[in-house]
Design a protein around this nucleic acid. Structure first.
Lengths: 350, 350
DNA sequence: TTTATCAATCGTAGCGCTATGATCCGCGCC
DNA sequence: GGCGCGGATCATAGCGCTACGATTGATAAA
């Protein structure tokens, strides 16, 4: 089918969609330099002479030229985009990371392409596939747990992969985050230090949220190690104050002696505080409460919530830094691990 | 400089970066069809014969082909990306919209490119400029207020522009959202209906957050219209429970008779509830509180918060729908306005 | 003077795809 | 048999840019 004999082409009357667009060639012409020089100026201004540089700058300004990054991405076989895949930006933790990362990447004119897995590995797989078709400068994934197909796809590419918000498992390449078990353990130790001997962990959506599960595991392990009683009460719904209220009443019903709880996050802890207030249960005297997240209300609530502040912001910044350095030629350290830690904020709920 | 005489080119020994990538041509070869047919199949599978289609599908599968959307975007002069520019995803409202939109766009294999203005018009301008260099399928902006340069850039392109989260001003093209003055007015009327006669509006960051200001304006206007006393107490910091606590204590100090407040959002309202509890002030008996946002904690707090639920989710869905329809050839209605409304949730804080 | 070096600039060949218009071929109809 | 029609398929010309390697011209070193 490809080798048929064809007569001469006649008139190639071919008018392509015109597009108004002003191209690099227009700028080059006006600045009286070659397109290559314009391209070079745009990518490494210090590499062109001051005179050429200013002529180009003037031309760009005059023509109101906007470079076509799609064309650039195709030619360079790597686009100035970073694909960030998180469970959901409705989750304040990831919103913070995404926000910090976007702010840092923007300065290097890198775009953020966003995807939400909704805690679904198959969804993640699909997002990674699409992400790859953009030839991004880097791919950022949340957590260390991915489907086999996802791993396979990523191992076949040369695109740098960064996993965030989790440490302590097998990582694809670079990981930035902290150990969730350590968070759980820190909560448990804190409660024990406050004299509590009957602990409980209140978990929301732990079947899907692997990191909440890890925190729970760390909590239980540390409590057991200290020889203190510990229970786990959970609910499949996503973390919310309602779930917190339900969980604490269930806990007190089943284990009336409970005197210290850690919650899978501050939303849950807030619900616990509200429910205790309704039940007339003194916090922290009768029950100490520890949250996770240090959300916007945590310091202001009544009593102020003892919680663990993760480093969502720092995670984003570090990820951006690594990507930018990699782009600048510094090879990204292979299989690096950056522990961004967390902080326990001891407030009056414990 | 372009017309210099050059000797014959010698050996064009030119090895380009190879890239492992499997291209459409590889698929075409394996499926024994031309690349055009593969392309056609990918874009409109119903246009190729069943036999060719399945051969192509098999080849794609076998080769693990991932289409290069960057190349596609260049050739088609429009990429399968939608640029969404919001003040910040750390704000739960916008997170919800972005999330809903991403979910809807994904189904049509459209990518979301995200940008944060941090409530800065100059920043927005810059983001729009970069957005345009991606030749996106659409640009989504937050609010109706933009810099002149932004307007100019957008008017010069053929990229559809959608403004979200605000109605009632001059719009660039399509706008999806609701009238914030109506929100304010609804809050005021509700409080008046509950018998309150000394109102106050507690505003956070109103100098930057134009929409909070509009809600405030609507609140004041409705109160005045009803002949009820109304005060505005504000703080420049972003909305938070701390700010809410500060604002309510300032309010009560300056206007002791205040018996009903509306807050610029539920974070602020939550702070009011906490502060009232500390002060021993009965809500709603002594003070009725209305929030805005129906955030995760609003139904669970103590007392449950009367608030106004905006339609962040719907805004995202509608925006996505319009974009998808436009891509399918249905021209987007010019200068359309979609009012997604809001709902007042009367709970026990008023 | 010749040669080497270096910074600045340039010309060209793609990058992988899509849109366009052409071609091919089977079918029904005059 | 000739013709028109339309579905299926194809070849080709870019899309706007970047990377590569070459070229130029000035300066330093031999």
């Amino acid at each position: 089918m490809a080798d048929q004999i064809r007569p001469e082409r006649e008139r190639p009357v071919r008018r392509r969609r015109k597009m108004q667009s002003i191209t690099m060639a227009d700028v080059a012409e006006l600045a009286k330099v070659s397109p290559s020089t314009v391209s070079l100026y745009l990518r490494r201004p210090e590499a062109v002479s001051a005179s050429a540089g200013s002529a180009i700058a003037r031309a760009i300004d005059k023509l109101n030229y906007v470079p076509n990054l799609v064309a650039g991405g195709l030619a360079a076989a790597s686009s100035r985009a970073v694909s960030i895949i998180v469970p959901s930006v409705r989750n304040a933790f990831f919103a913070e990371t995404v926000s910090a990362m976007q702010a840092a990447l923007r300065k290097e004119r890198l775009q953020v392409i966003l995807g939400h897995t909704e805690y679904d590995e198959r969804e993640e797989e699909d997002l990674v596939r699409t992400a790859l078709s953009w030839a991004p400068a880097a791919i950022v994934l949340t957590g260390l747990s991915h489907s086999d197909a996802t791993r396979r796809m990523l191992s076949k590419t040369t695109v740098p992969v960064i996993e965030i918000w989790e440490l302590g498992g097998p990582q694809i390449d670079t990981a930035i985050g902290f150990h969730h078990q350590q968070v759980g353990a820190a909560s448990a130790r804190h409660l024990i230090q406050q004299g509590r001997r009957h602990l409980a962990y209140l978990g929301a959506r732990m079947h899907e949220d692997r990191r909440a599960r890890l925190r729970c595991d760390g909590f239980v392990a540390a409590a057991q190690e200290a020889g203190v009683s510990v229970e786990v009460i959970q609910h499949p719904a996503p973390a919310s104050a309602e779930v917190g209220a339900m969980l604490i009443s269930e806990t007190l019903q089943q284990h009336a002696s409970t005197d210290g709880v850690a919650c899978s996050n501050d939303h849950v802890a807030l619900g616990v505080l509200f429910e205790c207030e309704r039940l007339g249960l003194a916090v922290p005297d009768r029950l100490a409460v520890v949250g996770f997240g240090d959300l916007s209300f945590s310091a202001a609530c009544n009593p102020p919530l003892t919680t663990i502040r993760p480093s969502g912001d720092l995670i984003g910044k570090e990820a951006a830094r690594l990507i930018i350095e990699h782009l600048a030629g510094h090879d990204m350290p292979e299989h690096a691990t950056i522990d961004t830690r967390f902080t326990l904020l001891h407030r009056r709920s414990s």
